[in-house]
Amino acid sequence: MKNRIQSDRYVRLGLTRLVAASVVCVVVSDATHADTSGSRSLDPLTHEEMQAAVELNQPILGLRDSMPEKQQQPSVPGTGRAGLRQELLLVERRQPEKGQRKNRLADVYTYDYVANELVHVIVDVDRNAIVHSEILTGVQLPLIPKEVEQAMQIVYEDSEQRDLIDSEFARVTGRPLNAISDLKYKAFVFHADTTAEGVSEATQNCGVHRCAQLLLYSANNIVIDVSPVVDLSAGVVTQSVTTTGHGHGSSGGTPR
């Protein structure tokens, strides 16, 4: 905290000079209405607060999990076959409304792959109570690492995609693709309605379904010109896009 110490020294020096010069100090402030609601309202959630919020969320998810099988039927055949079921996506402090003294709140987001729904719960961490919950469809938060890995695994095990990737990998690197670890990849949420060019029929579900588009690279960061779209809800590759923007195919894949 060297800097803090220096700062304090500068304050003292400055004020000493002021007093020595005039023995008069003038302070003007317009902050007459400064928000004085609690000293912790903007502090981030602690680990304990996050854990408590997630635990409070469990009964709601458990309730969904224990629904009769008929009610759990996915709206689209194949939904939820990627080995993903209920994934905790995000826990963060909820921004309080301005000018109001409020308890600290947490937003907890969980994606239910069975129903293809985002479960959003607001937890009052001061009272340890759920104050609001809602079910959303068509709302897709960022992917978590587990989902990205799952998407890559689906691509790697898809024979049609493997042929394309093997060929492109050999072309740009001059050697065969031997293992998934030869590839670097990143992924982002894919919405069908944000792409103007060639969206296959299977990809049309993306947005209502949770989908990922993968970007593939060699170990030395040369782009592999195959960018598969994976419907994580259905567990299939729905199409692959090249840098020219045209689909490499739209098999819809085989549900896993």
């Binding site: 007093v19 023995v23 008069v24 100090c25 003038v26 302070v27 003007v28 402030s29 317009d30 007459t32």
Partner: peptide, 8 residues
């Protein structure tokens, strides 16, 4: 506004 004239 708060105008605090503090004579020390």
């Amino acid at each position: 506004s708060i105008l605090a004239l503090c004579a020390f």
